[in-house]
């Protein structure tokens, strides 16, 4: 493509000429900035990026990216992204979505795109609320949530997005937070680097309708004790004083204090490729007594849908020869009229 080698793109190259219209202070600004900062490092010509979104606040994202972009319909971004990727596997295709968009109206597409393992990067902005429609509870809102549409409290149990993703056979599951810029950049890079469907959940604060939804993870005084930053091959340590850890007692995880009774040798070592560990970690939800894990929860190597499709096409051409339209139209039984 046209990008000359050595002429590296900068953040500025990915900023479109459209004014950003999110509420001042919205967590979306950070995610946009981290994305624009991350893309130049990926070594891909700008014209090969495609950002595809559904409907919701987060889904305005493509308008602000100076790449190819498609703002589609509520919940359907994964379907359009699948079509783009299957038609042009050489493109870097990103899906930008929210908790209502991908887990409520688009739930079906979300699980199917993951199980197919089409090489897309799905970034889910989770703010646990419907923002664009001005404050109704979402499928990730906590039980009993009081919102405009649930004045007496919501009645349904929320989804646990990484658990849904794992259940749908996702091959890459990660989490980050809007207020953790360098971590977020790293996760965007990891999502891109994974060949297959990558699912990145980003906790994002909605200042207007659900402010402080993740307060414990973002405030200086509390975040140390509530965030578990995962590093592959490292013991799971957290805490303001780095004096707490996660230990497995049989199959049961527990929080222990490194105070003499336990040492780092007793702690669970993170292994990104171990699905059992991923299962344990996905249950450390924000509403549980465990710290919230951020980082790569799970990654697996598996062929992609589009590679399998290409392989079928290649094999068919080898075995049957390149398709011959005239012969196909003639078929097996023809007759002549003189």
């Amino acid at each position: 493509m046209s990008q000359e080698r050595g002429q590296k793109l900068a953040r500025q190259d990915f900023i479109s000429n459209q004014d950003v219209r999110w509420c001042p202070g919205c967590g979306d600004y950070s995610i946009l900035a981290q994305t624009q900062k991350s893309l130049p490092d990926l070594g891909i010509p700008r014209e090969n990026f495609v950002f595809i979104s559904g409907i919701g606040c987060s889904s305005r994202f493509p308008y602000y990216m100076n790449t190819y972009g498609f703002h589609t319909i509520h919940g359907r971004a994964p379907t359009l992204a699948s079509g783009v990727k299957l038609a042009r596997p050489d493109l870097s295709v990103w899906v930008v979505t929210g908790d209502g968009d991908s887990l409520s109206i688009g739930g079906n597409h979300f699980i199917h795109v993951l199980r197919r393992n089409i090489d897309l990067n799905i970034v889910l902005f989770n703010n646990r609320i419907y923002g664009l429609t001005k404050g109704q509870y979402s499928p990730t809102s906590e039980l009993g949530k009081v919102t405009k549409s649930t004045p007496f409290g919501s009645l349904d149990t929320p989804f646990n997005p990484p658990a849904v993703a794992l259940g749908a056979q996702a091959t890459f599951v990660a989490r980050s937070i809007d207020r953790y810029p360098s971590h977020l950049q790293k996760m965007l890079g990891r999502a891109h680097g994974h060949k297959g469907a990558s699912f990145l959940e980003v906790y994002q604060n909605c200042l207007i309708f659900n402010d402080g939804a993740f307060r414990l993870l973002t405030e200086k005084e509390t975040k140390g004790d509530h965030v578990l930053e995962l590093e592959n091959g490292k013991p799971m340590i957290f805490g303001k004083e780095k004096n707490k850890g996660i230990r497995l007692n049989g199959f049961k995880p527990e929080v222990v204090t490194l105070d003499g009774d336990y040492s780092t040798d007793d702690l669970l070592i993170h292994n990104e490729t171990d699905k059992n560990i991923a299962d344990v970690l996905t249950n450390f939800t924000y509403d549980s007594e465990f710290p919230t894990p951020i980082g790569v929860l799970f990654v697996a190597k598996m062929s992609t849908y589009e590679d399998r499709l290409d392989e079928q096409i290649k094999t068919a051409k080898e075995q049957l020869g390149e398709g011959n339209l005239e012969a196909l139209i003639r078929g097996a039984d023809t007759w002549e009229v003189e």
Binding site: V50, I52, F70, T72, I73, R76, P78, T79, L80, A81, S82, G83, V84, K85, L86, A87, R88, L91, N108, H109, H112, L309, Q312, I313, T315, A316, K317, Q319, L320, G321, E322, G323, L325, L328
Partner: peptide
């Protein structure tokens, strides 16, 4: 007709099948 290079995609529902088709149209 794989040997004609045709990409058929049996989607998860009717909506996904047209969604993917629109995506493919966007991509040429």
């Amino acid at each position: 007709y794989r040997n004609f290079g045709i990409r058929t995609f049996q989607a998860e529902d009717e909506i996904a099948s047209i969604g993917a088709s629109i995506g493919a149209a966007f991509a040429g």
